[in-house]
């Protein structure tokens, strides 16, 4: 009983820790890592809705990420629309786009779907690279404005960005928490486990697949806006980068996909490693940082394919078995 109460408190403890973290880690680089960690945790959660819960493995999340970044940036630079409205527009626009694309895509399964998402991200990248109205391959620079919450720009410190992403993470986690317990969550899992049986039981699989894709894409698109406002720049080769897609999936797999905690743990461990190796070793362009990253992915898949939450579950089971063994003895 005592234990259960403690476990219930854990998320709030983690949140308190997250709120205090940037007040302790004050250096610019440390705060940058914090922003990236939380941003990727959000995107990985979004990926999880689509892949971990509904079983549609996407390796092309960069398509939604970049699209969101471009929607708000174009609105801001060319039509003077406030970035916060752009932020919402990015979410809605990306979700709408994903719904339209998702209609044919929802027919694809497994690796055909995964390769389709890679193809989608590559196609969009090419379109944006050759679209002069949105800056072509050079992209668009977001002009600096006076800093402040309403302008969605913070220059003196990164705290503003950090708390915005953190708030988003809290909202997304709360959403998934209720989704897991709702009919929709069960429908997603039913589709993941066996589409034919789910359809047989009366689940409208196309509808629920589209809902999962739209939610996942919308959240990812909004993250795109945040990153564009953060680096004040939107360019195709960065925004639609294939490594973004892989990293998002990787975090969820590393942490453990199909549950709420996995993507957060995955991002907390993986992103600092990735950012630190890039900062220490990546400056010369020798590729060592990415070499380590690649080797890390391989080792992880070989030795811990179930992710960290998988290990935790294994350890938990073993402890329980030992305790029961002792009782029996």
């Amino acid at each position: 009983m005592q234990n259960r109460k403690l476990v219930g408190l854990l998320p709030f403890l983690a949140l308190a820790l997250a709120i205090v973290a940037p007040l302790v880690l004050k250096a610019r680089f440390q705060q940058h890592v914090l922003v990236i960690v939380v941003l990727y945790a959000v995107m990985s959660q979004a990926w999880n809705i689509m892949a971990g819960y509904a079983g549609m493995v996407s390796v092309g999340q960069a398509a939604f990420f970049g699209l969101g970044a471009y929607i708000s940036t174009v609105l801001f630079v060319q039509y003077k629309v406030n970035p916060w409205i752009g932020f919402l527009a990015a979410g809605l626009g990306t979700a709408l786009f994903a719904t339209i694309i998702g209609l044919p895509f929802s027919r694809l399964k497994g690796r055909y779907f995964a390769i389709g998402t890679i193809a989608l991200a590559q196609m969009i990248k090419v379109v944006f690279e050759n679209w002069p109205q949105v800056g072509g391959a050079t992209g668009i620079i977001v002009p600096m404005t006076k800093e402040g919450f309403w302008n969605f720009q913070f220059h003196s410190s990164k705290l503003g960005y950090y708390y915005i992403v953190l708030a988003m993470l809290v909202l997304v986690v709360a959403f998934i928490y209720f989704m897991e317990r709702s009919k929709m969550g069960f429908y997603f899992k039913a589709i993941r486990e066996n589409e034919e049986v789910a359809t047989g039981l009366g689940v409208n699989k196309t509808l629920y697949k589209l809902i999962a894709i739209a939610i996942s894409a919308g959240i990812t698109g909004m993250c795109g806006t945040i990153l564009a406002q953060y680096i004040l720049y939107a360019e195709p080769s960065y925004m639609f980068d294939h490594t973004v897609s892989v990293t998002i999936a990787l975090i969820a797999v590393f942490g453990g996909s199909g549950n709420i905690v996995g993507p957060i743990i995955g991002s907390v461990i993986l992103m600092p490693i990735s950012e630190l190796t890039r900062a220490w070793l990546g400056s010369g362009g020798t590729g060592i940082d990415l070499m380590i990253y690649g080797a890390f992915i391989v080792l992880m898949c070989v030795y811990e394919p179930d992710g960290l939450t998988g290990i935790a579950a294994k350890v938990g089971r073993r402890l329980k078995a030992r305790r029961e063994g002792r009782v029996a003895a």
């Binding site: 493995v57 390796v59 690796r111 995964a114 490594t243 892989v246 999936a249 990787l250 797999v253 990415l290 070499m291 990253y293 690649g294 080797a295 890390f296 992915i297 391989v298 992880m300 898949c301 070989v302």
Partner: peptide, 10 residues
Amino acid sequence: MLVTFGLSIF
């Protein structure tokens, strides 16, 4: 799926 991705990056 990811193992060969990692190998490729490496």
